[in-house]
Amino acid sequence: MNRKLKYFAFMALACAGVFFACTYLDSVNIDQPQPDGTMAPKVKVGETATFTIKGRFETNEDHPEGRNLVIAMLAPRDWNIAKNCVLTYRGTEVVDWEDIHPMSVIPSNTSPNNMSGYTWPAALMERFGLGPNRYNDMEWVAWQGDELIPIYNGTHATYEVTVKCKVGQQNLRANLGFVVNNLGDGMSSDEKYIKYAFSEHQFEVYGGIGETIDFGKLRFNSVEPARAIQDDIITYTFVGDAYENDLIKEPEIFFRGKAYTAEGGVYEAEKLKMERANTFTHSYSCTIWPAGFFNIPDGETITKIEYSFTNAAEDVVVNKSLDDLMGGETPESDDTPFTYTLVCGA
């Protein structure tokens, strides 16, 4: 009985186990055709960018019932890639190269087989993080093939994944991340079956309103939500640990803001005390309803808010100029405030 039991247990495990192909990710191309005919890793706000991932599978097992390709991508939250990207793939040998196979976002209620308790986005962030990016306003999303691909012993197939994304409205520069895996493997620790790559260069979105956010840099400021208008409730955070500064030595830290309306009005509010998130980090936040906070008259609409962080006496200031300086740039002046543009975008 014991031996039989062991045999069955082994068989059950073998069935549930993951056998797929050795996966290779050979290249990621993020270059886009430019108006002047050249190729460059950039696109205008709201336009569609096409990324291509190429690689191979090599197998030594038969799986005529097929396996399900998984592709994941790391991109700025502003793009909302789960909604705004369309993924397809094609392959050689096991499928016809001329056939284009659709992919769908893996539902948020499923976990990777080998990272139970995590959703795919959370598991990917845990495992691969942000790569070369340092500004955390990014997300991983995973897609699975809508159909299974049969696998045969000795298959040496190449694949090509096309990712078409309508980018957001924010000017930004970020390294994009890509992962190739399969549903059965489900993010196992065996690197034979899972491969990842971050784009060698930053991808840029340009032509929008407001400053360009460089995701490769730490920043003194962060704002939530990324997109808001005057009847939203907005949280401004001073990230005091981003770089060395004198403001974190102050007992109290304040938000100093100025609102500009489309009608030409400029409204300045009293400085507002920011609350420290906890005693372990120098992170201070305040939350405002802009229309109420700046006392905007009926019929006027805020288009941007300029702000900086300061102490009670307002003689120690952290602003965009200091942020740029610490980030290695040469600011034109030392008193440029941060700017938050109030627009919903597409």
């Binding site: 939500p225 997109r227 939203d232 919903c344 975008g345």
Partner: peptide, 9 residues
């Protein structure tokens, strides 16, 4: 969603 449609309260 009194502000942007993407934000819900």
């Amino acid at each position: 969603s009194p502000g942007c449609g993407t934000n819900s309260y």
